[in-house]
Nucleic acid binder design. Structure first.
Lengths: 234, 234
DNA sequence: CGATTGCTTGATACCTCTCAACCCAGGTGG
DNA sequence: CCACCTGGGTTGAGAGGTATCAAGCAATCG
């Protein structure tokens, strides 16, 4: 389990961060101004590290866009095994659901800011602004495409390939390709790659011994040989 | 590898099944009449077992709905490792792409019939019929939700749990819950679950020894104790 | 009837997990 | 300032699960 803080509050309906100074910084209903792709008014919300944004089974009345920080969406098995389905960084949307309830939970990997949009207002406004659907569709599609490469990763790659692939992905997304600045713990990485923390650690050490990366610190990883790393990905 | 037949033809543009009597049975442009959810005219096409419907890298001008039979969508690594991302049965849509090209390939698991829709006509007609987007969106969402449970399966389940989960899923989808009639080979199952055929076979044998299933034949599997099977899924 | 294909079973190897110890940085309190 | 504690991370030894390699069986097909 990961949520250290235990708020006695369900976020399902209002999705206010409830306690602990996590109130919206922007006025509720204010435009995020992040871009104009999704012209629906949203509420800006802050979440602190490891705070739950929504839980599996909550009413799925909102979907979200990340402004700053990183969010993880994950599923759990009864015995506590966790699988992180995706990390969402600035610009990514998450929280789409087919049914009435969330089928995953979302948590803040680090302190982060997100915008929430109401599904209902989205549904009703959609008819009036047909530009909305294509935008949503594109965001969905990105998530689906990512899920598909993740599937290949989990099913058919070795531990070393998984870690190498993860580093490249993250470096591409975040810091322009040569440095992976990781906001997440080894446990997060392990749960994303379907490994244990020990194996993740060992593979990182192995990559460093092979001079493909350099662990400036545990969370700052320099890709010394990105091409060789990419070749591990067949 | 799985495609036994080797057609010297690229399906990229016209997506004609090319050789081997796989021409459309319905007139091109004829309405599929499957349901009226997607009012865009489509072409009905037949594909024989293991025939490629489209390949990774082909122009993604069409998307598809399965009428009869089963289609697999999969990715390959350079060394031949294959990961099946999904099996699509009657009513399922597949072939959605964010970009201009397919990022997976699609093949017929058994002889099957599909309808193809033009992306372009979909894009242009969408503005005129706002009912189209929600329908597409719902189909996407189903695919995304499936990808997410698949992720959990691949990352955090044992071989036995994977096979049990697969049997339950398939029995639910196809034959009303108690019999899994499998159109796919053990290799397909293995590539879907991230296992080898030997392990799949062993797990099936183990489930049979535990009296949870009965292998009437290799492809006809009776679930003698569905509840116990489900409990393997935590 | 032999050959092929799909599937099962066995023996062994290897990769990853498990359990454990240890290291290190940061925070707290005496 | 230093002792202590804590959480995150690394490393090692051994166990265990799945892959690999190999043989054999059954059904299908030419």
């Amino acid at each position: 389990m990961s949520a250290q803080q235990s708020f006695p509050v369900s976020y399902g309906v209002s999705l206010r961060p409830a306690v602990s100074g996590a109130w919206p910084t922007g006025a509720a209903g204010g435009k995020p101004g992040w871009d104009n792709a999704l012209p629906i008014a949203g509420s800006v919300l802050n979440f602190s590290q490891d705070q739950e944004i929504y839980g599996d089974g909550d009413d799925a009345q909102l979907y979200f866009k990340v402004l700053t920080g990183v969010v993880r969406t994950c599923k759990f098995l009864d015995d506590g095994r966790r699988q992180i389905e995706a990390f969402h960084a600035a610009g990514d949307l998450f929280g789409f659901e087919a049914g009435a309830e969330y089928t995953m939970s979302a948590e803040a990997v680090c302190d982060c800011t997100v915008v929430s949009y109401r599904r209902r207002s989205f549904d009703t406004q959609a008819a009036g602004d047909e530009r909305v659907w294509p935008q949503m569709f594109a965001a969905m599609m990105r998530n689906l495409a990512r899920a598909q490469v993740h599937t290949l990763l989990l099913g058919r790659r070795t531990a070393l390939e998984k870690v190498a692939s993860f580093l490249i992905d993250w470096a591409d997304r975040a810091s322009g390709g040569r440095i992976a600045a990781l906001p997440m713990t080894r446990q997060d990485i392990a749960d994303y790659l379907g490994l244990t923390i020990e194996t993740v650690s060992r593979m990182l050490s192995q990559l460093e011994r092979q001079d493909l990366i350099e662990l400036s610190s545990a969370r700052q990883i320099k890709l010394k040989n990105p091409l060789a790393l990419r070749e591990l990905n067949a």
